[in-house]
């Protein structure tokens, strides 16, 4: 083969390599575009409805009344198990203006944990189930989701105001996200 022939051959190989690399790059980019283009179904509206269902059902079957009037915090567990059954994590926060009587009821109904009362009537409890009760000018009950729940950014949340027989007002904040 002459020298010019070798040169041509080299050039040919180089252009082949270039075209081949371009093809591979193009396929790679297109595949990425294809993967990025696959969007899951938007379920936000349904998730709001489901969260609303949990609160609505707890209200209608007397659960919220048990919680607000008798301090029965097992209602929160029931709500969380409902969410978990549907594949969601639920975070609940209930705030009430302080009144020592419902507070006592609430504390009595809590299982486990250690209650500390200091002179300024600040009660504190961190129970084994992860709930904490820190009433200062108000009581706040946190009912955290199970440890298996990983925090996610796309949450749905709602707030409800629940009047009690004692003339107080509970503010129930609920946050829900996919497990």
């Amino acid at each position: 083969m002459s020298i010019s022939g070798l040169d041509r051959c080299k050039k040919g190989l180089m252009s082949f390599e270039a075209v081949f690399s371009l093809a591979v790059l193009l396929i790679f980019v297109s595949s990425l575009a294809l993967i990025a283009n696959v969007k899951p179904i938007d379920t936000t509206v349904y998730e709001y409805q489901l969260l609303n269902d949990i609160l609505e059902v707890a209200e209608k079957n007397g659960g919220i009344e048990r919680l607000s009037s008798y301090g029965d915090v097992t209602v929160l567990d029931e709500m969380q198990s409902l969410a978990s059954e549907h594949g969601y994590c639920l975070n609940l926060e209930i705030t009430e203006n302080i009144d020592i009587n419902p507070l006592k009821d609430l504390i009595e109904s809590l299982e486990g944990g250690e209650f500390i009362a200091d002179n300024s009537e600040v009660w504190q409890n961190v129970s084994s189930s992860g709930r904490s009760l820190i009433p200062q000018d108000h009581i706040t009950i946190y009912s955290d989701p199970p440890d298996s729940c990983i925090e996610r950014s796309n949450k749905v949340s709602t707030t409800r105001t629940i009047p009690t027989y004692l003339g107080q007002v509970f503010v129930l904040k609920a946050e829900m996200w996919k497990q």
């Binding site: 040919g12 252009s15 082949f16 075209v19 081949f20 371009l22 093809a23 193009l26 396929i27 297109s30 595949s31 575009a33 294809l34």
Partner: peptide, 17 residues
């Protein structure tokens, strides 16, 4: 011929994607 095959492949995969 090689270039044509490569171009045909690019076009095929492009259209497929």
């Amino acid at each position: 011929a090689t270039a044509v095959v490569a171009i045909a492949l690019i076009l095929y995969f492009g259209l497929y994607i």
